[in-house]
């Protein structure tokens, strides 16, 4: 893996916020996938900050059509390459809004048909490009501009949609979750996905300093805390079976929540014990479901 190459495949000069996890993700993806990759982006932050005409940050062939159709466009690209006997890898890239919500029909169709491509969702847990509105990936109790915390609201009233499991149920040969906080792990998963025939899915946790309310220098630290509290689990599934899970010595969810403005209402004016207990229960459930806890020897 060549870091120099990554700089060229996703170039400097893009207009992402300082400390942007999506920009990090784009670099890591291309570093892992290499230059013989065609990227199909959906509308969203990554598309907008990387391609204001006449500038492009992409050093690989890249196409953007609409918000919700990157899987369908990718289907066409894959078919086109197959017909021409070409060997480039195809990666569809979308944010969580494009992936979980508006592009779900195209995504489901493409996975059911079994096209040979990798879909990577950079999950920053809300519609960031339009100004931080809730999506199907927004976690429980996060305050967004369309799920604001208020006198009779604790923020988003629903937990995240379990999209990796839904796509695994489509018969996807490889499904993985990852985090930009663990670059080598993420890159390994991208490499594995692009080299696995059939539709593969990676959902990479991409903390958004602007949308979540923390300083850009903390992007990686926040990502690590999501893993360490059990609110985000890094795992791999092969042919519908969980084959690998990142284990942790778990920290209380407070450690993750307290550093983010989107959860500030849970701590001010005083700690909301009842709501934080519900979030802790979500982490505990993840821990049981995936067996992430490392038991320390006494």
């Amino acid at each position: 893996m060549n870091d120099e190459a990554a700089c060229v495949l996703f170039d400097s000069g893009h207009r992402a916020c300082g400390g942007c996890a999506a920009a990090m993700a784009a670099r890591l993806i291309l570093d892992a996938a290499g230059k013989d990759t065609i990227v199909v982006s959906s509308t969203g932050c990554m598309e907008v900050f990387s391609t204001p005409y006449p500038e492009t940050a992409w050093g690989v062939p890249w196409i953007h059509s609409l918000f919700e159709n990157n899987s369908a466009v990718a289907s066409g690209v894959v078919a086109s390459l197959k017909k021409q006997g070409r060997k480039e890898k195809v990666i569809a890239l979308g944010g969580d809004g494009a992936t979980f919500d508006i592009g779900m029909l195209c995504l489901s169709g493409a996975f059911e048909r079994g096209h040979d491509f990798t879909y990577i969702c950079y999950d920053n847990e809300a519609y960031m490009n339009t100004g931080i509105q809730r999506s199907g990936a927004t976690p429980y109790d996060a305050s967004t501009t369309t799920s604001p915390a208020g006198s009779c609201s604790f923020g988003n009233s629903r937990p995240k949609k379990d999209l990796p499991m839904i796509l695994a149920a489509h018969g996807a040969p490889y499904v993985a979750t990852a985090s930009i906080a663990y670059p080598p792990d993420f890159k390994k998963k991208v490499e594995k996905a692009v080299n696995t025939p059939g539709p593969c899915y990676i959902q990479v946790h991409a903390p958004c300093c602007t949308g979540w309310g923390f300083e850009g220098e903390k992007t990686v630290a926040i990502g690590k805390l999501a893993i360490e509290t059990g609110l985000w689990v890094n795992y791999e599934m092969e042919n519908g079976v969980v084959t690998k899970v990142k284990k942790v010595v778990r920290k209380p969810v407070d450690d993750y929540l307290v550093g983010q403005k989107r959860f500030r209402h849970l701590f001010k004016p005083k700690r909301n014990d009842a709501e934080i207990a519900k979030i802790q229960a979500l982490a505990d459930r993840n821990a049981v479901k995936f067996g992430i806890d490392i038991t320390l020897k006494k």
């Binding site: 060229v8 170039d11 400097s12 000069g13 893009h14 207009r15 990387s50 391609t51 005409y53 006449p54 500038e55 492009t56 940050a57 992409w58 050093g59």
Partner: peptide, 13 residues
Amino acid sequence: CTARPGKSRNNKT
């Protein structure tokens, strides 16, 4: 509305 690689480098962030 296409562009060739390298063009984002014109934007000195």
